[in-house]
């Protein structure tokens, strides 16, 4: 399934809680159903993104890790 990402956020090198704050800001700019891609290096972001999505109702559609970079794809509710 190919997914069209509306916006990519580079959060590499940022530590908690900055990745969540920047994501919360960025997703405001998107329309409902659009996808946001976030790239982070903070290991704590894995749990934080999961919890943030379930709390806000946005959908975490993909989560991968490669060479210490975590990639999250979030669909705006």
């Amino acid at each position: 399934m190919s997914m069209q990402v509306a916006k990519t956020l580079d959060l590499k090198g940022l530590s908690c809680p900055l990745p969540i704050v920047k994501t919360a800001q960025a997703i405001k700019e998107l329309a409902s159903g659009e996808l946001l891609e976030a790239l982070a290096t903070d290991p704590g972001s894995v749990a934080d993104f999961k919890a943030w999505c379930s709390s806000t109702g946005n959908e975490l559609v993909e989560q991968t890790e490669q060479d210490g970079v975590y990639r999250f794809v979030i669909r705006k509710k």
Binding site: I20, A24, Q25, A51, S55, T56
Partner: peptide
């Protein structure tokens, strides 16, 4: 109150709202 990232304050209404809505 968790996941409350402040977006704006409305001083006349006495409310604060978050990016999370």
């Amino acid at each position: 109150v968790t996941f409350f990232n402040v977006e704006e304050v409305d001083p006349s209404a006495g409310t604060v709202s978050s990016l999370e809505g």
